[in-house]
């Protein structure tokens, strides 16, 4: 079993965030009736199986002045994407990077990389950097700027009985 009932309690208790107190894990443990050690062990396990990626701050790009963001998309040679994808993903201005299926004939792109910047010129310069990095392995690319958020819901747990 990947996530049991107690794990789900931990997820629910920390979904909104970790308490900002000197002993935050103790505070969560008390709330759900576990010992601090038991909680730390469970969190460590959830991290080892990838359910928790890390415990960290989510910065607000807009408030930090990174108001331009573009979804760059690339048509990368299938034999080389495994090698080039991680290099693109490691660029400091790329926040998410995925390989996805093409939707031919209209959509030849298989590499997606989200780029953030203070303004569009900066995003375009970074896009140029990715293009140079991909070189001849890339047959084309495009960039899709977001113009409006139509909906944004928080993380919801998959509906499931424990």
């Amino acid at each position: 079993m990947k996530v049991d009932a107690t794990d789900r309690q931990i997820i629910l208790a920390t979904q909104q965030g970790l308490p900002l107190v000197p002993a935050p894990y103790k505070a969560v443990a008390d709330q759900i009736g576990l010992s601090e050690d038991a909680l730390l062990e469970r969190i460590a396990r959830l991290k080892s199986i990838g359910v928790i990626r890390r415990i960290a701050a989510a910065p607000n790009h807009y408030r930090l002045g990174m108001t331009a963001n573009g979804m760059t998309v690339w048509d990368v040679d299938d034999d080389l994407i495994g090698e080039l994808g991680p290099i693109v993903g490691a660029l400091p201005f790329v926040t998410h990077s995925y390989e996805r299926p093409r939707a031919l004939p209209g959509w030849p792109y298989n590499l997606f990389a989200m780029v953030h910047g203070a303004h569009r010129d900066e995003v375009e310069a970074k896009r140029g950097e990715i293009a140079r990095l991909l070189g001849a392995a890339c047959r084309g690319g495009d960039i899709l700027y977001s113009t409006r958020i139509l909906k944004k819901a928080g993380l919801r747990l998959p509906p499931k009985k424990a």
């Binding site: 990947k2 997820i11 969190i43 990838g50 990626r53 747990l157 499931k160």
Partner: peptide, 17 residues
């Protein structure tokens, strides 16, 4: 509002979603 959230980042896909 500089930080939208501070806490665990969950991968719902790893949870079975």
């Amino acid at each position: 509002g500089m930080i939208t959230r501070f806490g665990p980042f969950f991968d719902a896909e790893a949870m079975g979603g």
